[in-house]
Design a protein around this nucleic acid. Structure first.
Lengths: 157, 157
DNA sequence: TGCTTATTGCAACTCAGTTTGTATTTGCAA
DNA sequence: TTGCAAATACAAACTGAGTTGCAATAAGCA
């Protein structure tokens, strides 16, 4: 078992700093604001890139160890509640990030994903201004768009 | 084990009709034109939607059974040779289609993928005329784009 | 036809993720 | 503070996609 995002781990300080924000974000959405939920959400918030379940579990391992099944369940629950969203990677591993899910068609500001071919990390690029001019074959009724880039990220360029 | 694309299977007639074309496509690219390669490529050619390894194996099961490992290897080999390309699905399954791979950035005609939320099938939409006007955050150097739609396909609309 | 070697078939394996079940803990409200 | 439902921990078994190693086969060529 190896980390899917080897470099640039979340610092513990950054994680702790996001705990209040994580709690606040959960207050409205959750019946119960539990420690694992807060910890996992704070962990996601402190990252600038998408994290796999394993990344999350490992990031919290020393400070606040959480059962891997719970990590799975909480991450799925965060997605269900619209607090986070997940991205299918090229390596069949789900990665998670805080924020809105897939963007509806016909917005001019697109939520895009950028996967670095160098360091392997996936970033969310919010508000990518794109002008779509779709001419899909007749009969195809799109509801959502996913925009995915591959290339060099700002850290590896 | 369930099929990933339950409806609208490849008919055997359509598959047989594509065998000569498949052989011709392989002649230039392959050292050896083997039966599994021809069969699998003909199978891909006869489909109008993306097929998983399992779909291919199942489609050929009765007429021309091929070991599932061979299906994996041949499909990967087809991608490597530029004869087919693969798409990462939302269910952690690779799907394959004949044709060119990912489009480079800065082309105005985009090779897009459309996944139907109803029947679950993924289609390739070639030559989708899109006018991209990317403004990625500074430092991000994109090399490839993936454009992915979700919605209702022409069969389910 | 026989030779050579790429390719195939088979079996066993890895790995991410899921499921189930039970005992325990904990958030929250009465 | 107490009671209770919801959530977590832990263990274990399971699923399903994809991989690896090796012996057997068959495509192309002389």
């Amino acid at each position: 078992m190896k980390s899917t995002t080897p470099s640039r781990k979340t610092s513990r300080a950054a994680y702790l700093a996001h705990i209040p924000a994580a709690e606040a974000a959960l207050r409205g959405k959750a019946d119960r604001v539990t420690q694992p939920r807060v910890a996992i959400l704070a962990c996601l918030m402190s990252m600038d890139h998408a994290a796999s379940h394993f990344d999350v579990a490992q990031a919290l391992a020393t400070h606040h160890p959480i059962d891997r099944v719970t990590v799975y369940r909480v991450l799925e629950w965060l997605v269900e509640k619209g607090i986070a969203h997940r991205i299918a990677g090229d390596d069949r591993v789900w990665r998670f990030m805080v924020g809105a899910p897939r963007a509806p068609v016909a917005t001019h500001h697109q939520h895009a994903h950028f996967t670095c071919t160098d360091c392997g990390q996936t970033f969310c690029l919010d508000d990518v201004p794109t002008k779509f001019d779709f001419k899909l074959p007749s009969g195809f009724k799109p509801a959502e768009v996913d925009l995915k880039f591959r290339g060099r990220c700002s850290h590896c360029a």
